[in-house]
Structures are given as structure tokens and as C-alpha cells.
Design a protein around this nucleic acid. Sequence first.
DNA 1: CACTTGACCTGTCCGC
DNA 2: TGCGGACAGGTCAAGT
Length: 304
Amino acid sequence: MHYTGVQAGIIVSMPELPEVETVRSGLSKLIIGKKIASVWHDWPKGFPNSPEEVKQFLVGATVREVKRRAKVLLIELNTKYSLVIHLKMTGQMVYRADDERFGAGHPNDSLIGELPDKSTRVVFDFSDGSKLYFNDQRKFGWVKLYPTVEVPNIEFMKKVGPEPLGDEFTSTDFASRLSKRKNTNIKAALLDQTVIAGVGNIYADESLWGAKIHPTILVKNISDTKLNTLFTELRYVLMLAIEKGGSTNNNYVNAEGKRGSYMDFARVFRREKLPCPRCGTTIEKSRVAGRGTHTCPQCQKATA
DNA sequence: CACTTGACCTGTCCGC
DNA sequence: TGCGGACAGGTCAAGT
């Protein structure tokens, strides 16, 4: 009953690209090389593979690699199959080493609850006694076993846009891909996964604030110069968030036992009624593209 | 076709 | 303290 570094870590996400990337890097430190001894779930809708497939390609398999594409987590096994996982709004991957707790006095001990709990949908038992829990309060997420070679042929994978942090992704690509949604507002275009992969509500708001663009402005009315600034700001907030371990608005910790701290750096997201860090004007909350949206009315003018 | 809205779920918070 | 409604870091299907 004592803290032993990453072995006692729990991994959480409320996930956009940086949060899923945090889960990916944490999991890769914890489960690569481990053998899955058994799998439990009671959730055919979210985990639709047949018991025969699970038995044949998952039970007894060893984890080879943990990858990410857009907001999707890919756990490659040595059976030529992969677990493809989407956390959607409330999914979490929680790792526990053999019922270990952080231990009395450790600052994170109070964050550890008993598992499984009522949001636990899937439990992977490893042969060394450690466990990986897939928790998802709202059941929007899913876990699916696919032949690894088929993963690129999944509909979502075929249509999803480029990784915004990819080395080859340029400001020109960004502008040209956005132009296929030129009659919609810029926030809806940023959230469209077929335009660019991985951007969600937090980083859409944060990057638009950074570029001083109002979320309701139509893509066609934004200058190339502004789009170039948005490209820079988007990459900046995504990279900063990954460095900070993502955003968590509650007391969850990552694989290293640390809280994701991006929310401490957020400039507008969930900061309505607080002053804009650039000009001091009160931040407003509205609804754009069906999502709660945060803006500075002074920095981000609703006219282009 | 491009674009917008509702549905999928469960839990919490806020106003009456 | 109870109840209804809005809302929640995502995505797809169905609607206009």
C-alpha cells in the first residue's frame, strides 16, 4: 500500500487531441509488453465484438504499441488485431497495478476510488495482476477489436483530416482544407474532424481567442493573414496542452500521478464573467455550432 | 451537395 | 429538498 511511481498511476481524459495524446503516452509506458489474461464487459453496444473474436484475438494477446490518430486510441496487439478506442465525452482509461493505492499521506491518495465503479464498462486483466479499466459515464465511447490492417479502412479513419501537429501540415494546407467549409462559421469548421483531426470545443475557443477571430465569422470572410495566425495559435495551444498533460477540470491524475494542468493556462474556456487576460474585458459565453462558446467581445469582433 | 439540428446517455447544477 | 430543464471537452444520422 505505497506509492510506486507510474505503477500506481491512473489515466484520465475528457478528451480532445492533447488529452488523448496524454492517455496514449501514459499507457505506452504502462502496458506495452503486458499480456491480457482476461477481459470483462457487459456492454455489447459499446464493445460489439463477439465472444469468439475476443477469445481468439484479445485474450492471451500482448500489447505491442499504443498509438493515436485524431481522438482515437489504437492499442496494437501481437495477434494482428488492434483495440480501437474512442473516449467521446466522458471516457477514461484507468490503470491500476494490482489493487495498489497511493498510500496514506500521498497527495493523490484521496483521488483514488474503488474500481470497478458504476461507470466501468470494460476491464482488461493483465497477467501480472494489473488492470486497465475503461470507464464511461455517458456511454458515448466505444471499444472495438479490428484486424490491424483494416484500421485505416474504418470509415472514420478514411475521412478524418490531417494531424494538425504533423510535420508536413502547413498553413497553406490549413487554409485550403478550411475552404471546403467556407460557408459555415469558423468554429464549426474547426470542429469538423474531416477538415482537421483532433480539435474540440476547448482548443477551438482557445485558438480563436489567440487569433482574435470571432467564432461566428464565416470562413470565406476571414483573410489569409488571419487564417495563418489561427494556424499558428491552434498549433501553439495544442502543443502547450500536450506539454501540460491536457485539460482536466477535476481531480484526476495521469500516468505519472500528476494532474493535467492546461486549464490553469486557458485564456477564455470556462472563464465567462472573468477578465480577458489580454484586454481585461469581461469574457462572454454564448452558443455557436451548438456548443458552449467563450469569447472576448473586445478582442474578437463579430464582424470580419 | 453544404449545412444545421437532434439523438445518443448519465449526472449535476441551477432556478423555482 | 423536490422537480424540471439546461448543459456537459464528440460524432453520426436525419433533416432543411
